[in-house]
């Protein structure tokens, strides 16, 4: 009988926990949102991995995965748009450098976000027709930065100009060039082909 009592107490505690969580879900999301902002701002030292992970886990377990996911999309989109503004504003040579730097930062951030939200990535996303975090990061970059009407042609022109200068004997920043090409490859082989290889081969042939 005493065992019975203990169990029903457990049951109560469990219910209490669920109800309690429903009340503080907004607060939890605010913490997570803040953490995602801080990831993009390279300022994580005020966070504990365990704490952030636990909050994200709790949200998914208590059926707020949907909220977490949509919130994540909004926050990430916001940051990539900010990055895009910086890239767009950069002039001349700096354009590629800015692009490369932001791409690296975005990648790092996506990786970090994925680590924190790995529970969502593994348990919530596969059961819904949603895009996993990493893939979403790539798509987002593609949609916001590369597909913007000006970037595409500007990127191609800058790259081809670099190639041309190298061919005519100038020293160029090869590391930068390699990183940008790698970015195109990461975004998908067809992106690389359409945005660079075709034009590159044509120009090379002309040369």
């Amino acid at each position: 009988m005493s065992g019975q009592k203990k169990r029903s107490f457990l049951n109560e505690a469990f219910k209490h926990q669920v109800v309690f969580f429903q009340e503080c879900v907004e607060k939890t999301w605010k913490i997570l949102e803040h953490a995602i902002h801080e990831i993009y701002n390279h300022n994580l030292s005020s966070f504990s991995f365990e704490e952030v992970y636990r909050h994200a886990y709790n949200m998914v377990v208590h059926n707020f995965g949907e909220k977490l996911y949509s919130g994540l999309l909004t926050t990430m989109t916001y940051h990539v748009k900010e990055m895009f503004k910086l890239i767009e504003a950069a002039q001349g040579e700096l354009f590629l450098e800015e692009l490369n730097r932001n791409w690296a930062e975005h990648n790092k951030a996506v990786q970090m976000i994925r680590d924190i939200l790995v529970y969502m990535d593994r348990n919530f996303i596969p059961s819904t027709p949603k895009t996993p975090v990493r893939e979403f990061g790539l798509n987002l970059w593609m949609d916001v930065v590369i597909d913007a009407s000006k970037t595409r042609s500007r990127l191609l022109d800058t790259l081809l100009e670099l190639v041309h200068r190298e061919m005519s004997g100038e020293v160029i920043n090869r590391g930068l060039m390699r990183n940008i090409i790698k970015m195109l490859m990461d975004l998908g082989f067809t992106v690389y082909q359409d945005d660079f290889e075709k034009h590159f081969l044509k120009v090379s042939a002309d040369f």
Partner: peptide
């Protein structure tokens, strides 16, 4: 993830 990110976070 946690162990490889020790340096980035508060811990």
């Amino acid at each position: 993830a946690r162990l490889s990110r020790m340096m980035d976070f508060h811990e």
